[in-house]
Design a protein around this nucleic acid. Sequence first.
DNA 1: GACAAAATTTGGAACGTTCCAAATAATCAT
DNA 2: ATGATTATTTGGAACGTTCCAAATTTTGTC
Lengths: 347, 347
Amino acid sequence: MSKERVTVIDIAHAAGVSKSTVSLVLQGSSLVNEATRAKVNAVIRELGYVYNRGAANLRQAKSKIVGIVVNDLTNSFFAELAVGVDMVVQSAGYVQFLSNTGESIDRQREVVASMREHGISGLIVSPARGTEAADFKSLTNAGIPVVIVVRNIPGAKVSSLVSDNLAGASAAVEHLASLGHRRIAFMGGFANTAVFAERLGGYRDALAKAGIAFDDDLAVATAPSRAGGVEAVGRAMLLADKPTAAVCFNDAVAFGVCDGLRARRLEPGVDFAVVGFDDVIEAESAVPALTTISVDPQGMGRRAAQLLLKQINSGKVEAEAIVSAVRLVVRQSSGAGLDTTARRAVS
Amino acid sequence: MSKERVTVIDIAHAAGVSKSTVSLVLQGSSLVNEATRAKVNAVIRELGYVYNRGAANLRQAKSKIVGIVVNDLTNSFFAELAVGVDMVVQSAGYVQFLSNTGESIDRQREVVASMREHGISGLIVSPARGTEAADFKSLTNAGIPVVIVVRNIPGAKVSSLVSDNLAGASAAVEHLASLGHRRIAFMGGFANTAVFAERLGGYRDALAKAGIAFDDDLAVATAPSRAGGVEAVGRAMLLADKPTAAVCFNDAVAFGVCDGLRARRLEPGVDFAVVGFDDVIEAESAVPALTTISVDPQGMGRRAAQLLLKQINSGKVEAEAIVSAVRLVVRQSSGAGLDTTARRAVS
DNA sequence: GACAAAATTTGGAACGTTCCAAATAATCAT
DNA sequence: ATGATTATTTGGAACGTTCCAAATTTTGTC
């Protein structure tokens, strides 16, 4: 077994029909007679035929393949985003190329080019830092829809789906202020990214609205990781006028901040309030459970995929910019009592 | 711009050569004259030609595409595994289909079939629970190499790459026993999986070797997640004769155990020793840093990919079973002092 | 300048599908 | 039965590449 590939012609011979008829059956056409359809299907099973999509694509030039490239799959936010995409892509009968760039622009360029050669009919990308609008020009010129997620690229004429970073950070600050905090830090994140700028912007806005002066020392930028959170809390606690609360760039940073606090014998949620951003799955089961801004990465992945599929099917590539609503989820880490289910709509 | 696809024939015309010559240039053949090569390459750039791998595959039947399917991308162990695979696959000029099954056998069957139709030339799979040896028969019959990772499937005639679960759990127990613990629990994991059986086996072996009787109450099976860890510690602490240490099914469980301990005002690494399994990235930066069995998922991903590529290139599909060595990484959570770098080879 | 040898180039014929236009078969109304 | 409809089936000709065998050009030798 396993010598030659079984082809549509083999099926045709064995079933005593023409290859055209077999093709019709394959695509579930209603033109073909019920009896022949059954016969052909039987032979297909019997000979163990497997459809060759490559050949089909060659003829029809529309491929049931999409690409997804993320900047850091190691980060569970992006892993969940990918899972969300996977879900809808899969049930639409598509299959996805997935690649990780690890923030490398070069890798990103390579994998996008490679995916293009392989004939993707759409691309979802969470761009590496430093990606420029021009980097997707060639795709869009070819009429291949592109959806940018998470990080927006100013000036790119493609669809985007980002979360409402401004409103989210703003709500976090407002929440902390309402609990009486005045020295609220902003911790973590690389300063030269759009997402950072937006979240920091929301933080400043809300501070102003609460009548609290912005203090440059309280905005401590570090890597957007758990280790970065540890570092941030270390730096902030060196200040003469220490903060009593922090809104963090993301949940990973927030977990790091909790770690750093405990290393200093401070109990997060009791001695110091911390709010995260993203609401990754661990946020709920951590101790203390993390108060955070829920952006539902999996949902974002699903929506991005739906948007992409819509564009693929509708032929026209009309850029659409969606900002995804976000909500504050109050849990223990901000010290606001034990009601895990309290939630407030934000945007 | 962007009306018709630019093809090899267009290039040929524009460069004043035949399509065969263009094809030769494309594959970097040494047969073609340096001057013509330059000319052709210039035209290729000028017209913005993009190679159509689908068409090429059709002719040559070998595809520069591999598939990877994992059972839970949300789990950072698997996300890292995927990143490892991605790295070597990418630099070998391949591109990968990646799909998540979420432990669904049906999804797994579907995506594998779909990938097959798309012409993958190899598959790496971390099988969903309940996968049977027969499920990959059709792939291997067609001469497509398959590498099973993480969870072995008894009886499957394909290559596998799993970590040395027995030696790992054994080393963890030995470590705890050497610190004076006698009531050592085994926490987390679904009881009906091969990995669970192996780790529990290692636990029992080491217990016996240390002259400690196995106590059924101390083996508490739960979901292999953070929440499962919280649950496990909850159940164990109900016992009259409480444990003083635990080796956990994996790091996620271990983190949950730490959470659960803290919720009971016990400090992990001080009042109770915990050892994880996997050594995910967070293990190092958590507080307390987690003593764990390092299996280096990214490294496993890389090795799996290398093994697969080797098999793809060598044509022959000779099943190979690799068990990947594992080592104990001693950090704070087991209460063995503060030397983070202490490490011991295990298998 | 003629011949052989080496280097380079080149037309088809694949690869496995889908599509089109046209052929054939079945059904219907008269 | 007969012609008109309608339902089904069917041969090529694509799609964009690679491969083969053969043709052509260049180079080398005497």
